[in-house]
């Protein structure tokens, strides 16, 4: 049975009605989002293998729409593997295969008839290292829309502007959209990648340690950006920085050696973890 974030914790027993109670677990300063909180990605006994090695083990979880969910855990615990499974980026690795089910909006992501190209259009991803194309800023943002058949210059200009504004980059680059994106700073490149992902209007944004290659100032900007996007997109962010997870997320998943150990509202997980392992991890007894 798939579990909601609350139910997956050991305090599940103390739970009353699902859904309606979700808000009480949110950190007080974080308001509930409108039309949010529906199961957006659902894992049922979902495992991921590299050859014989089970990197992610029988995960049951529901990611709630329009909230920010952080994934934390020590290095090598399967955070990236799980995240990349959601838009099937793991397909690039020949030895990688899955078991169980992973649903997106009620559709099986690994279903026989699922078109991974369409899926990726709806589930955007930003990677650990900024990876703009060696093209102009404009062409980077317009890449996705062009893929999906938009070629009208005016429309593209509109999309580029809107995406860059959403990614809080417009003011910095509006006068040099034709310059090569590789000339931007690392932080700007990463926000460009966010803008590029937003330009295809995805439902979900997957962020795999988006700030690990950035300096603190650029990191703060990205975090602000996530705050900005919260409520409009379902966001999953992998981070090994626990402060970051507590700052930006509504819910947190803690993975350890491929197992989803604890999944709870962020505040609860950090202040009152139910699992000893979680406690040890967030108190820094191991990393």
């Amino acid at each position: 049975m798939p579990m909601t974030a609350e139910a997956n914790t050991r305090s599940a027993a103390s739970q009353g009605a699902e859904g309606s109670n979700r808000e009480i677990f949110l950190p007080p300063e974080r308001k509930a989002v409108k039309d949010g909180g529906k199961p957006h990605v659902t894992a049922k006994n979902f495992s991921i293998f590299y050859g014989d090695f089970e990197a992610v083990k029988k995960v049951n979880a529901e990611v709630l729409s329009r909230y920010v969910t952080a994934i934390i855990g020590p290095s090598g615990c399967g955070k990236s593997t799980f995240l990349r499974a959601i838009n099937r980026m793991n397909d690039l690795i020949p030895s990688c295969h899955t078991a169980g089910t992973l649903m997106f909006n009620g559709e099986d992501i690994y279903g026989k008839y699922t078109d991974e190209v369409l899926l990726r259009k709806r589930i955007g991803m930003v990677f650990q290292k900024p990876n703009p194309f060696p093209k102009s800023i404009f062409d980077n943002i317009a890449y996705g829309p062009r893929l999906h058949g938009i070629n009208d210059r005016k429309t593209l200009e509109g999309i580029v502007e809107k995406s860059l504004k959403k990614a809080a980059l417009w003011d910095e680059v509006s006068d040099r959209l034709d310059r090569n994106a590789l000339g931007l700073s690392g932080g700007q490149q990463q926000r460009l990648c966010v803008a590029r992902a937003l330009a295809v209007e995805p439902d979900i944004l997957l962020l795999d340690e988006p700030t690990s290659a950035l300096d603190p100032k650029a990191t703060a900007k990205i975090e602000d950006l996530i705050e900005e996007l919260r409520g409009s997109y379902t966001i999953l962010i992998v981070t090994h920085n626990m402060q970051q997870a507590s700052r930006v997320s509504d819910y947190t998943m803690f993975f350890y050696e491929g197992v989803l150990v604890e999944y709870a509202p962020t505040k609860q997980l950090f202040t009152n973890p139910k699992d000893q392992m979680t406690e040890d991890y967030i108190t820094g007894r191991f990393s």
């Binding site: 369409l118 259009k121 990677f127 990876n131 893929l147 990648c193």
Partner: peptide
């Protein structure tokens, strides 16, 4: 990855 991730 970037290109495929955008749905190419």
């Amino acid at each position: 990855e970037a290109s495929l991730g955008l749905g190419a």
